[in-house]
Simulated scan of single mutants.
Amino acid sequence: MNSQMFINLILEPLFKKDVPRLYPGEEKRIILHMDSAGAHVKDTVVKWLQDRKLKFITKVEWMSNSPDLSPMDSGVNSIFERRCNRHKAKNMAELLAIAKREWKKGLGRSGLGHCRNILKAW
């Protein structure tokens, strides 16, 4: 995917349709975070975002890819993934049900406290 395809197929629909639908009245508060894919960091994409006064995290501002610097990926998400992997889903519907059940369990008193501890330690 090149930068123009990324703008046309992803960014335009995202900011014209999805963001207003998902966050009505909050559109100006959205901050886009992309990865380092070539199409995401091209000058044309950055200019497109800036011209529309859309907030985004620049490549320079991104966190390094390190367990020490990414508590949600290395802490919370890894625990969630491990819990889901205890079960053997036979299809996508079953996996979704397992994920929802485990997420609810994880957000109980101890799970929420565990998330807080991970973020405090970070």
Score class of each variant (00 low, 15 high):
V45C: 01
Y23E: 08
M1N: 09
W122A: 12
E27T: 06
G25C: 11
K53W: 04
V76T: 15
N77M: 15
Q4N: 14
P71M: 05
M72R: 06
M5E: 03
K42V: 01
N91C: 08
A121M: 08
K88R: 13
R109P: 07
S74R: 04
L9H: 07
E27P: 12
G75Q: 07
R86C: 09
L95C: 08
L95N: 04
I7R: 01
L14Y: 04
E27W: 08
R86Y: 09
R109N: 07
K53V: 06
I10Q: 01
W62C: 04
K88I: 14
R83Y: 14
S78M: 07
E61R: 13
L49Q: 11
M63P: 00
E61H: 11
V76C: 04
L22E: 12
L49E: 07
V41L: 01
W103C: 06
W48L: 00
S64F: 15
I57T: 12
L107S: 05
S70T: 14
D35K: 04
D73A: 09
S74Q: 06
K88D: 06
D73T: 08
D18E: 12
A37P: 03
G75M: 10
L107K: 13
C84H: 08
G113M: 06
R29F: 05
R83L: 09
A89I: 10
P13F: 04
I57H: 05
H87M: 09
D51K: 08
